Simulated assay, not measured.
Amino acid sequence: MKIQQIDIFAIHLPLIEPFIISYATYDTMPSIILKVTTDTGIVGYGEAVPDEHVTGETWESTYEVLKNHLAPVVIGESPMAFEKLHDKMNKIVKDVPAAKAAIDIACFDIAGKALGVPVYQLLGGRYHEKFPITHVLSIGTPEAMAEEAAKRVEMGYRSFKMKVGTEVTRDVARIKAVRERVGEDIAIRVDVNQGWGNAATTLQGLRVMKDLNIDWLEQPVNSEDIDGMVEIKSKSDVTLMIDEGLCGVREMREIIAKRAADKVNIKLMKCGGIYPAMKLAVMAEMAGIECQVGSMVESSVGSAAGFHVAFSKKIMTSVELTGPLKFSKDVGNLHYDVPFICLNEQPGLGVDVDEAVIQELCQFSAVVTA
């Protein structure tokens, strides 16, 4: 079985409401959907959701690098030779993890379909039966965030990921408002998205929010500041998660060596797909560091890929793949039983892709063949 053709679709996924984080506001989510066809007729789908602030890739550059560099180099290769595929992609262009993730995910979808098994069976089998879904609160006024949290509690959610990262005093007011509204039994995770900049500012914030009982604090400092994470961890008893500071093996080695975090947020778009994500998970497991599979707000395609990784590993203790719940229209049908996610038993990613929706949302496209 060989890769015969790759169709590339640059789309905009429509959000129900704007997604606001410390460094950007999204009215739609730019995504690249791949359709990979083999010479046996099996079709697999992949997705790239780049972020110039995190992966160093733009939507436009990802489309171009896939069309002109990565897709041509994997044409004619076996979609099941994951190590070889990544080696070829890494030799042709450095980094660009979201672009590589699109090809990686599509190939795992093909492999699962060819063997008649879900992707998680290719990764060691299913360990978790279900995961609770955490609702993500975009940055807003304290009152608005508290009101949305209260509504979500009524829907059954038991945990929130609060986006903050503007100014510490205002962020603490947001966290206090949500905590007072939802009570002490609801889990609150705080994601700063690098917005507090450095360890000193972060420690100031932690001192004034010490009684708010947060589950963990995620990426408060600049992504390159591993030593800042070490300082925060040494001076605080709040669980510390690293996100933007972890892309691949190089960063994971430094995090482990310096004990820079209690928990790491592995994202397929940051590391290059399912195959590299499993390598990072094994490294973290050996070091005794808990893992989460996080989201770049992918469609059902990319989100399902992340869930297969999460469901297959014991060290994965949380997931935040809620992209499909935020879209007014999606290209696939990943099913959520809010506030839980339970994967199906279908081969591959287990997602039915609607090509009519892809065409409707498509801004431009390309076909790469032998």
Rank of each mutant, 00 (worst) to 15 (best):
N90R: 14
H86M: 09
E83D: 14
H69Q: 10
K91F: 13
V73G: 02
S78A: 07
K91L: 14
G76T: 05
A71R: 04
L70D: 00
D95S: 15
M80V: 11
V96H: 13
V93E: 06
K91Y: 14
E77P: 00
V93Y: 15
K88V: 10
A71Q: 04
K94S: 10
V65T: 14
L66G: 00
K84H: 12
L66Y: 08
A81C: 03
F82W: 12
M89H: 04
K84F: 13
E77G: 01
L70G: 01
I75H: 02
D95V: 10
D87Q: 10
D87G: 08
N90E: 12
D87T: 05
F82D: 00
V73M: 11
G76Y: 13
I75V: 13
V65H: 12
K94N: 08
M80E: 15
P79S: 04
N90H: 15
I92Q: 08
A98Y: 06
L66V: 05
P97K: 07
V74D: 00
P97I: 04
P72N: 03
K91M: 10
V73F: 06
D95H: 14
E77Q: 15
H86S: 05
K84A: 07
D95R: 15
E77H: 08
V73T: 14
K91C: 06
M80I: 07
I92M: 13
K94Y: 11
P97T: 08
H69D: 02
S78I: 04
L85D: 01
K88D: 00
V74G: 01
D95T: 10
D95C: 10
S78M: 08
P79W: 09
I75W: 06
V96W: 11
M80P: 02
A81S: 11
N68L: 09
I92G: 01
L85T: 02
K67P: 01
E83K: 15
K84S: 09
I75N: 01
D95F: 15
M80S: 13
V93R: 11
V65F: 13
V74H: 10
